[in-house]
């Protein structure tokens, strides 16, 4: 389902997502999600993939949307969960785990902060038929928090703590998210970088180089840190 809002396309998707849903997504479009998603970041990847632990729950049976997130949440004395705000953490650090993660869980959507490189999309995401949706801001913690209807379960809470545990979240109109990569492996961020990079050198015109240089320093401003 797609609509227009001030020139920006808007999509409403249901999670778990269907492959057909992803085919229509255009870079820079706005996405709102309904359904089930789960959080998982380095703590989960290390246990599951590096240490070969048995997953605490059948993730593939729950959803195919993995949110790189740690919620601002608390557990009350009666054991119920309160989630106040949710925002994403920078995803580029997790790229190395994703080929195996996609194979093992059937994940098709990563939600996070900052995206990954176009190279990662082409080598890792495209073969898995997966796309990347970026949170907005950053971060719209309160708006995303409003989109959470219920915490359906928390796994590995004792082992990993609130920030790193797997949170299974039932969401409604969860967003806004932006389409950062499409099924062809294009990146919205890199598209914008290329436009900005084209005139960045001129900002340095006439500025003399520093007296003391540093190891690893580059003068190529089109480089990225990720």
């Amino acid at each position: 389902m797609a609509g227009h809002d001030g020139g920006i396309k808007t999509y409403r998707l249901t999670a778990p997502v269907q492959p057909d849903d992803l085919a229509g997504l255009e870079l820079g479009g706005v996405v709102y999600l309904d359904g089930l998603i789960y959080t998982g970041r380095e703590g989960v990847y290390r246990r599951l993939l590096d240490q070969g632990e048995t997953p605490p729950v059948d993730l593939a049976g729950i959803s195919n949307v993995n949110f790189h997130c740690s919620p601002a949440a608390a557990i009350d004395d009666d054991g119920t969960f309160r989630v106040g705000a949710v925002t994403a953490t920078a995803s580029f650090r997790f790229a190395k785990w994703l080929p195996q993660w996609f194979r093992q869980t059937g994940c098709r959507v990563i939600i996070g902060k900052g995206g990954m490189s176009e190279r990662d999309y082409r080598e890792i995401f495209v073969p898995a038929g997966a796309v990347y949706l970026t949170t907005v801001g950053y971060g719209t913690g309160a708006l995303l928090g409003r989109g959470i209807q219920a915490v359906e379960g928390v796994h590995w809470l004792d082992e990993l703590g609130i920030a790193q545990a797997i949170w299974v979240l039932r969401v409604k109109e969860f967003g806004p998210l932006l389409v950062e990569s499409d099924l062809a492996g294009n990146s919205l961020f890199e598209r914008h970088n290329r436009r900005i990079d084209s005139h960045i050198e001129s900002l340095y015109d006439g500025l003399k180089p520093p007296a003391l240089r540093r190891f690893g320093e580059t003068d190529d401003k089109t480089d990225e840190l990720i």
Partner: peptide, 28 residues
């Protein structure tokens, strides 16, 4: 346009935080 869209979403976010008395960002 996209930069403006992001900033408008942030303005909405501050309002949501204030109305709901929930943190504006989950990264404490």
């Amino acid at each position: 346009g996209l930069s403006a869209f992001v900033l408008e979403a942030m303005l909405e976010n501050y309002q949501a935080a204030e109305q709901d008395r929930r943190p504006m960002c989950a990264d404490t």
